[in-house]
Design a protein around this nucleic acid. Sequence first.
DNA 1: TATAACGTGTGACGTTCGTCACATCTAAAA
DNA 2: TTTTAGATGTGACGAACGTCACACGTTATA
Lengths: 211, 211
Amino acid sequence: MLQDIRASNISNLNSLHRRGKVLFSEGEPARGIYILRTGRASVSITSSEGKVVILRMAEAGDVLGLNSVLRGCSYDATVKTLDPCRTDFIARSEVIDLLETQAGAKAMLALLSGELSELNNRTRSLLLPQTASGRLAKLLLDWSQQNGSNTSSGEPIDKAFTHEEIAQMICSSRETVTRLLASMSRRQIIQVNSGNILIRDREALEAVAVS
Amino acid sequence: MLQDIRASNISNLNSLHRRGKVLFSEGEPARGIYILRTGRASVSITSSEGKVVILRMAEAGDVLGLNSVLRGCSYDATVKTLDPCRTDFIARSEVIDLLETQAGAKAMLALLSGELSELNNRTRSLLLPQTASGRLAKLLLDWSQQNGSNTSSGEPIDKAFTHEEIAQMICSSRETVTRLLASMSRRQIIQVNSGNILIRDREALEAVAVS
DNA sequence: TATAACGTGTGACGTTCGTCACATCTAAAA
DNA sequence: TTTTAGATGTGACGAACGTCACACGTTATA
């Protein structure tokens, strides 16, 4: 696997980044790939007027920028750390070399395949629900599935994001997120604690998600 | 290249389809890939309530369903022909065999890479503009770029889609598309003829696209 | 030619939600 | 502790647009 690069003889650059560091921005020539070792990072796109949409949250083990590097073009998204992060970096030329090995090519195929599936899911979650409440409900359900994958609705979601960040994930505004979370709380569908969210009525949340 | 499969010894199934035929639907187990030889087809996703979003228009040479086949899961989109179409079909088992060859793996890598880039672009076009007019303007500009890639704005766009189809491409409603096209016509930005659209004022259209 | 079936044009209306404005609350820095 | 920056809560307002309803045009199919 490409992520196990430390075991190989590829020269990689290990770095530590503070919270909020931009690893690379949309439009910069793709100089190489980053492998996230610890911490989380957001993968987002930005419009010329500054609107931001977060496409996915990267976690430890994720490879960032691979497709842009393979295509030899500019990065097609911006990656910003949400926590202090440790990363490995592999320069473009070495990635291209890896492409010639059977194992390397297959590893990259698996990575791109995974990225494609994930982007497909995100696209579906963002484009199909017509309302902001639908997108928010879907996001919460996705989170609860990733978290403890128990069917029991007892597990709280410990994703600690600001309303602003959530808004960017569901293509909405900060105020709308505040209002929707408050409304769902009032209706006993969820319970918002400091630092986590608990789903109290999964049926109701699923009903909102399809609206 | 995978698309040149006719030259190889892979057993492929060549078929003719009428306009409107569904090659495969979201959720069906991925039995194999389709290679579009002639005609166009829409790649779309559907919500449980019937809302349809067209993610891309496939054209001759495009390979459909590859990622789902590689992952061994269900198709993640629905493909419907817009014209009478001729297709080749390659069963999953043969695709998996191809994966073991260096050339096959690299060809698939290139295909997935292209798909990922395209989906990224579509995502950007659909999620970043906050208004329907912005998304429509962006769609028209994309079309004019694909068409005659001349910078001269004289080339008409000969895509013949119904307002309903355009609405599904820009996540809007049929009525809104009708109204927006009429409005842009009135403002001398475009000229709508039967079967094609001419961009008369590219500057203005670009201004609408970023709004 | 008749008659659907489908695409298009347009008015009226209400909901959703983005935006502005400001208050309050929390937590980090000084 | 005080200060300050960021996060959250909430009201008011209006633009955008989805939906319903129906008229009109234009191809196909009988």
